[in-house]
Nucleic acid binder design. Structure first.
Length: 618
DNA sequence: TGGGGTCCT
DNA sequence: AGGACCC
């Protein structure tokens, strides 16, 4: 029988925007798999990725012993005493592997139409790729393909078993989904070969369905949802997803689900707590709530989305991951960090943030690490006979590809909600000829000002700080100019790059780490060790220290105004002495930086050594 | 319950 | 600036 006629007479049911073919790719136990790539001795063993007091991710061996994701360490050890813990607080390695995988998949999908969800999930819109391949099948250029992996719904499976050779009798959409399942397999194989990590996939006509059914067969498997009969497609799909708890569906978060359980128990008159999130299935929700009900509960916009999802409809497009993220942030959690210890953490987190900014927002002279944008930039520069910026040795120089214009500080006191404040990013941090720890100190000062604002707003809840998050946001292509006020009459920073980069500006050779020692030694020991380790600085041994005593201990309070840079200046306004890196901050006080001397009273608002601090202990 | 992210209001 | 959502 000819499918040609069918195809012409049936212009696919959704004419407004063509039916899409989506692949949802999910890496199996990603953190564990990446850790095993780094350390193969973990293979085959029960492993948990530890973050503070919880197991963020667990290996399948651990799950077999009942060690679930997000379980407390204590409970995990009780379930599985042999459990091996891998520290998962530093995400840099995971980020690297994640990027590798993203690049491979992007290169295999037309137009790089790949969306990232977290570090281990990808959505690919392969509609047009599959379309082309389907047309080749129709033209007889290549034979029709069987689906790869698990197939749903049952109706399609049965038909496959019955009519073995007659793939061309299936509906066009069904055949396209079959094709996509083979593409998904190819992608998974490539990732496994080149990176060494296994993954699972779901193939369907929307992100939501693809993800839902991808979860049905999990490690290292895939599932395609390919309704074979247009007359039953909607019904088959609905019956398939009806038993799922709504929590498994992408738009239903904990708040929405809880609210629906609440309303459900009050309207149906069933006793409380009998409608649990797990029992709130798509079927139950769909029977209980129509669009109007949802609209009253959540508002028109959200209601429309949720209502559609309950009916298996999801129009969310696959949005290609941008070259640069919208934000880059660093956070750490604490068991009630006393206020006076906060500045040290600002230095530590600020330093980490700077590292990440340099890694992710700058060009890298090593061509092996070169980003796509950078290659394009170089090609353009070449075409226009403009030289790429060179360093003092004539080698290609790292330059900023994006500049975060704003800095945001988010904190949490106890278990209350997060409080955040933002300010302009101090431009000094972009001057990489200055040692990073110096720039981290600039960030620290900005953070202190923001922290004061947070405290003034929130007051002291008497439990110390439980979370600090530093975020670089508002990424711009242009280097921000310095031009607020200007009574320091600083030369305006050279606008970066590309065009006027003919002349090589001789930048001062970066100062050695020696200059940071005084500052370093003044930090508490644990922080100092962490920072020093990051920089590869060898800390003096105790013997050294006592013998040399070259590092004069500074008073605690001087942390707020310390300066170890050689270039010191006095504010012409208030006469305060400070490192030249702080000029800009100082000038903009109280936005960031040091206060002017005549405004010292303002400092009283922030008492770092508040005796009333009732620090919560573990 | 972590250490990240997104978008909407 | 906060809140919902995602992993």
């Amino acid at each position: 029988m000819s499918t040609f006629g069918l195809k012409k007479d049936q212009p696919s049911s959704t004419e407004q925007h063509p039916t899409r073919i989506i692949i949802a790719l999910d890496l199996d136990a990603f953190y564990v798999a990446a850790s095993r790539k780094r350390d193969p001795s973990l293979n085959g063993l029960p492993v948990a990725i530890k973050q503070k007091t919880i197991c963020a991710t667990t290996s399948y061996e651990a799950r077999a012993k009942g060690v679930q994701k997000l379980m407390r360490i204590r409970d995990a050890v009780a379930k599985c005493p042999e459990l091996i813990f891998v520290d998962g607080e530093d995400l840099s390695y995971f980020r690297k592997i994640s990027t590798e995988i993203f690049k491979i998949v992007s290169s295999m999908v037309r137009d790089g139409l790949v969306e990232k969800l977290g570090m281990d999930e990808l959505f690919c819109d392969v509609t047009s790729m599959v379309e082309d391949r389907y047309n080749e099948e129709i033209a007889g250029i290549c034979p029709p393909v069987k689906p790869f992996g698990n197939v749903l719904p049952q109706r399609t499976k049965h038909r496959l078993e019955q009519k073995k050779g007659d793939l061309d009798e299936f509906d066009p959409l069904t055949r396209k989904l079959f094709i996509a399942s083979n593409l998904a397999q190819t992608i998974r194989e490539r990732v496994a070969e080149e990176v060494g990590l296994t993954s699972s996939a779901g193939i369907a006509t929307s992100k939501c369905l693809a993800k839902l059914i991808g979860n049905l067969h999990k490690p290292n498997q895939q599932t395609v949802l390919a309704p074979c009969d247009p007359a039953f497609a909607t019904q088959d799909t609905q019956e398939l997803i009806d038993p799922f708890p709504i929590r498994k569906v992408n738009g239903f978060g904990s708040v929405t689900t809880a609210r629906m359980c609440e309303v459900a128990s009050s309207t149906t008159g069933v006793p409380e707590n009998t409608v649990t999130p797990e029992s709130m299935t798509i079927l139950v929700a769909r029977t209980l709530f129509d669009h109007t009900a949802l609209s009253e509960m959540f508002g028109e916009r959200i209601a429309t989305r949720l209502h559609a999802l309950l009916h298996g409809i999801d129009d969310e497009p696959v949005i290609k991951a941008p070259d640069f993220p919208a934000q880059i942030s660093i956070e750490d959690s604490y068991f009630g960090l006393p206020f006076e210890k906060v500045p040290e953490q600002f230095v530590k987190l600020g330093d980490s943030l700077l590292r990440r900014l340099e890694l992710e927002l700058m060009s890298h002279p090593d061509p092996r690490q070169e980003s796509e944008e950078e290659k394009v930039r170089k090609q353009e520069a070449e075409a226009e006979m403009v030289e790429v910026p060179l360093d003092i040795f004539g080698n290609p120089r790292s330059t900023w590809l994006r500049y975060p214009l704003s800095l945001r500080l988010t904190t949490r006191q106890g278990y209350t909600n997060r409080i955040s404040r933002q300010t302009r990013m101090p431009v000094e941090i972009f001057d990489i000829s200055v040692p990073r720890i110096e720039r981290a100190k600039v960030l620290m000062h900005s953070c202190e000002a923001l922290f004061r604002a947070v405290i003034q707003f929130e007051g002291n809840k008497g439990m110390g700080i439980h979370l600090i998050n530093l975020a670089a946001i508002d990424l711009s292509v242009h280097r921000p100019n310095q031009s607020i006020g200007g009574f320091f009459k600083q030369p305006v920073q050279a606008r970066t790059p590309v065009v006027e980069s003919r002349q090589i500006i001789e930048e001062p050779i970066p100062e050695t780490n020696q200059i940071d020692m005084a500052f370093l030694m003044e930090l508490p020991e644990d922080v100092r060790r962490e920072v020093a380790q990051e920089y590869g600085i060898e800390l003096p041994t105790e013997a050294n220290q006592s013998a040399g005593s070259q590092y004069e201990p500074l008073s605690q309070s001087s942390i707020l105004s310390t300066q170890s840079s050689a270039s010191t200046m006095l504010c012409s306004h208030c006469g305060l002495s400070m490192s030249s890196w702080l000029q800009h901050d100082h000038e903009r006080w109280p936005d960031t930086g040091l206060p002017h001397k005549h405004k010292d009273e303002d400092m009283d608002d922030l008492d770092w050594d508040d005796e009333d601090d009732d620090v919560m202990s573990i």
